[in-house]
Amino acid sequence: MEFSTSEQPGAVVVHCRGRLNMVAAPRLKELLSSTVESGGQRVVVDLTGTDFVDSSGLGALVGGLKRCRQAGGDLRIAGAGQQVLTVLSLTNLDRVLRPYADVAAAVDGW
């Protein structure tokens, strides 16, 4: 999985391309922590290019969410495909990590 970051007004966007499984999850968690430490309190995780997520990937997203909130910010996910949406729903995590259609929708009115 490849990660990159970009800036949107008021938010840092972390783009994730590939499969977010137990290999990639610790790297994402670390990246989200360092993003918050660098002052990015509002983070959008762009899952447009994420083909697959497993429970460890979900854990990394939840961990990132908590990290952002501890810093007074928030984390939103955007652009999730069918597998990611299904997995969020089957684990009830769509209540904790509400999926936004795309990055623009996630930062809109934030």
Partner: peptide, 20 residues
Amino acid sequence: SLPEDPESEHGRGLVLARAA
């Protein structure tokens, strides 16, 4: 079963497998 804490970072794997 799913973790009692909805913000737990672990403990969903086998529940997810069963549900799928």
